[in-house]
Write a protein that binds this DNA or RNA. Structure first.
Length: 326
DNA sequence: AATTCGTGGTG
DNA sequence: TCACCAAGAAT
């Protein structure tokens, strides 16, 4: 039964922790992915963009969007002055398009308050729109090499299994988890960066949520969860509702607006089962519009979704038509 | 603390 | 097939 190394770890625990660090670091050096936001030429801005895009979004989906984005807007100042419609279209289908809005707002704040350079300190990053506790720590650590306690979903899962012997972490981050994570973080800056990065990568590639590849894990023999016989997770995950919700309609409306090269009549977005396409509608407009119009959602729900997008700043009303802002 | 917010791949 | 899941943040 491994103790959680909170205050005064025993020599045994200290030795086990040192082994864990070394092995995971060695595994990361040989098996870690070669991602463009990890290459030596990366910029703090590139790291920040990647962290925002990667929120709740798989790496494979982010890769092509990140490459285009960095070529088009290689600095915060470039993004700051871009038309919002361009930003939302470049975001494409990464999901949660409010992130794109906040990323641009963050770029504008970086220009206004930090001379156009991404700040390196946690508190200053945290003050930027769309940047929370995780992203602030991640940018500070991965872009600037600072010693930060990074806690994301991967790291939480590895900690839960390796040190706490649980199948999965609880739904929300607890104070005990944060304490544990702090106690595990190496004192030296360079070592702390490697620890953050390598544990996160282990969670992403080996210690996965669904079917972990324990046979490939470098610390299999040191894992508290395996020692406990891989017990099932305690609380069942709560599903993310989607079908028949406003989110589904918001997504469909955004798809139409992204594809449209001119403002779209609001009635097309809200009338139930309207199938007549606008005269001269392009093929790009027709496809998502058709998908939207066949959604079995009440007219009132569609109206609510449109209103929500407008009030969130993701869409703009011009008379009875709506379009992307900017 | 519990919800809301997109999108698409997958076990 | 269909929940579940993916480098969370804001409220």
């Amino acid at each position: 039964m491994p103790s959680p190394h909170i205050a005064d770890p025993s020599p045994q625990d200290a030795q086990r922790l040192a082994q864990i660090r070394d092995r995971i670091a060695a595994w990361y050096a040989s098996d870690g992915r070669d991602l463009p936001w990890r290459c030596p030429e990366r910029t703090p801005w590139g790291v920040l963009v990647s962290e925002i895009m990667l929120q709740q979004t798989p790496v494979v989906r982010v890769l092509p969007r990140w490459l285009d984005w960095m070529r088009r807007w290689p600095s915060p100042a470039d993004l700051a002055e871009a038309p919002t419609a361009d930003v939302l279209r470049a975001w494409d289908r990464l999901g949660y398009p409010r992130r794109a809005l906040r990323l641009q707002a963050a770029a504008q704040a970086i220009v206004a308050d930090h001379g156009g350079r991404v700040p390196r300190e946690h508190d200053q990053l945290l003050a930027l729109p769309g940047i929370g506790s995780y992203t602030a720590a991640a940018v500070s650590a991965f872009a600037f090499g600072e010693r930060q306690c990074v806690i994301d979903t991967n790291i939480r899962r590895v900690h839960a299994r390796l040190f706490s012997g649980k199948g999965l972490p609880s739904r929300s981050l607890t104070a005990a988890e944060t304490r544990l994570a702090r106690s595990l973080l190496p004192e030296q800056r360079a070592a702390s960066v490697v620890w953050n990065q390598s544990v996160m990568e282990l969670g992403a590639l080996i210690c996965t949520a669904r079917s972990p590849r324990c046979d490939q894990c470098p610390v299999q023999d040191l894992c508290a969860w395996i020692a406990a016989g891989r017990p099932e997770p305690e609380e069942a995950p709560r599903g993310q509702s989607w079908k028949g919700t406003d989110r589904q309609v918001r997504g469909a409306v955004m798809a139409v607006l992204r594809a449209a090269d001119q403002p779209v009549p609001e009635s097309w977005l809200t009338r139930d089962r309207q199938v007549t396409l606008p005269r001269g509608a392009s093929a790009d407009l027709a496809r998502p519009l058709e998908a939207l119009l066949t959604l079995e959602s009440p007219v009132e729900q569609r109206q609510r979704a449109v209103d929500g997008l407008v009030s969130d700043g993701l869409a703009h009303r011009r008379g009875d038509r709506i379009a992307l802002p900017g």
